[in-house]
């Protein structure tokens, strides 16, 4: 697996806060736009399609489990 999921920041809280604060004062649509730009910038920085695909797969698992939960609730 090429994607690193180890903790790479010396202070992970600093990174989390930086992202949260980047959204400060934005409405929902602006936040989504910011995230989209951020994703493209970071993807380009990584510059490795295999890593990007693994990252997409890992992130997408959440959508999968969320829709499964919804289905279970509907049943």
């Amino acid at each position: 697996m090429a994607l690193s999921t180890r903790s790479n920041f010396a202070k992970p809280d600093d990174a989390f806060r930086a992202i949260v604060e980047a959204h400060h004062g934005l409405n929902d649509e602006q936040s989504a736009d910011l995230d989209a730009a951020l994703v493209l910038i970071l993807a380009n920085h990584i510059g490795d399609l295999d890593v990007l695909k693994e990252a997409i797969a890992l992130a997408a698992q959440r959508m999968l489990s969320a829709s499964q939960q919804q289905q279970q609730q509907q049943q």
């Binding site: 999921t5 180890r6 903790s7 992970p12 989390f16 949260v20 959204h23």
Partner: peptide, 19 residues
């Protein structure tokens, strides 16, 4: 929403746990 993502990623990744 960011917190939800971190909590969800924490199940499977070390970086998520640390966040």
């Amino acid at each position: 929403r960011l917190r939800k993502a971190v909590l969800s990623l924490a199940k499977e990744t070390e970086f998520g746990k640390r966040m």
